[in-house]
Amino acid sequence: MGPTASGKSGIALEIARYLPVEIVSVDSAQVYRHMNIGTAKPDAESRAAVPHHLIDLIEPDGRYSAAQFLSDALAAMREITQQGNIPLLTGGTMLYFTALLNGLSELPSADSGVRAMIEAKAEEHGWIAMHKELSRLDPVSAARIQPADSQRIQRALEVCYLTDKPMSEILKKPRRVSLPYRVTKIALIPSNRGLLHQRIAQRFEQMLKLGLIDEVRTIRDKFDLNDESPSMRCVGYRQAWMYLEKEIDAERLQEMALAATRQLAKRQLTWLRSMKEIQEFDCLEENLPQQIRRYLLDTGLKPAEAS
């Protein structure tokens, strides 16, 4: 686990050199087909060298949930262990890790009628007003949801209307799952936030050079999407969409994408600090691969050549 640009994918491939692992992606953006550059999806060479799971599952106009991840991840892990290998879960979508380790809360399924009612009210009064309504019904959820985040405002209000309870209250009571595995949790945490931000900037610059804008343009032309589609809400894609719609210029695109990515990293680090029994490593250390190798082999895992 770790924030964006901490080097998770590279470390996973290093681990595959000495342990019999198959990689399970824990990334809510890499589930989308055609979204390769902006998600830093493993390239064909990496995927040929080490089996990867839960990548390229749906089209960009589809939806994917934490509940679906939980089901798919457990199925993939079962398949991997049946082959005598070790599931190596790798990514930065902390909600997915939490769902796997602790289960999901019993939130109600989406209700098209309630959603239509919320959308109608939002069209009449605006999402700022809907956020104020959420503040009245569920101040805890409202405090963590941005007033412009219509998708999350809608879901939180929907839960309130369907259950007569704040979503934040329901989320306090997760449903336990019993994992039939011994879990080793490794987190890549930067000792210097500024250096992580430099990595983020360098990586986004590389994404632009590789053709992120053209990637988004191709997806936009092929699928019926808008700026509220879940796939286009991913960091980098949302800003590229705005650029293609001529809402922002190239300079503003870069500024907004970097700010959003830094905020994402901050949220990931906050979530990681709340998790228990984690072995932390400084992702900026030059000998990081060697440190992690020593740690994993000391836990009793058998090297690939001895398996």
Rank of each mutant, 00 (worst) to 15 (best):
G92T: 00
H34C: 06
E255W: 06
R193W: 14
C234T: 12
I11R: 00
Q151G: 10
E158S: 15
G126I: 02
G126Y: 07
A304W: 09
P230D: 08
L171R: 02
E215S: 04
A40Q: 13
L253H: 12
K172A: 02
R17A: 14
V183G: 03
P289G: 14
A122V: 13
A240R: 05
L57G: 01
P230E: 07
A76L: 11
E285K: 15
N36T: 13
F204C: 10
R182K: 11
Q30C: 01
G10A: 02
T184G: 02
D43L: 04
M35I: 09
Q30T: 02
V159E: 08
L54D: 07
G92F: 00
G113Q: 07
T98E: 15
D56F: 05
S6H: 13
G92Q: 00
R238Q: 11
L157M: 14
S168H: 07
Q202F: 07
I80F: 06
D111A: 05
E158R: 12
E59H: 12
R294H: 11
L101C: 05
A304E: 12
E14D: 11
R33W: 05
N192K: 13
G113Y: 01
S6L: 13
E215F: 04
R193T: 14
I11K: 02
Y32P: 00
L171S: 01
R193Q: 14
S6A: 15
E123K: 14
A48M: 12
S231P: 09
Q82W: 11
V235F: 01
M1H: 05
G103L: 03
H53E: 10
S71Y: 10
Y64P: 05
E228I: 09
E45F: 13
A143C: 03
D43R: 09
R267K: 09
A120M: 12
P60L: 13
T270Y: 06
R252V: 10
L88G: 01
R144I: 13
D298M: 10
R155W: 13
A75N: 13
Y18H: 06
S231Q: 09
H34I: 02
K209V: 06
A67I: 08
G7V: 04
D138S: 00
F281R: 01
I37Y: 04
A116C: 01
L244S: 06
S178K: 12
S105Q: 02
E285P: 01
K132Y: 08
Q151E: 15
D111G: 03
A259K: 09
P303W: 07
Y237W: 08
H131D: 09
D227F: 02
P166Y: 01
L157Q: 14
I213D: 04
G92H: 00
S65V: 07
S105N: 04
I189Y: 15
R293I: 06
I58W: 09
D282S: 03
A116V: 01
V31E: 03
R115Q: 12
K165T: 08
A120N: 14
L258D: 11
G300S: 10
K173C: 05
M207T: 04
D221W: 11
T261S: 11
S191M: 09
A259R: 04
D227S: 10
L157P: 11
L188P: 05
E79K: 09
I15F: 11
S46W: 12
Y161L: 15
K276V: 02
S28L: 03
Q254D: 09
R252K: 12
M256C: 13
K172C: 00
G300Q: 08
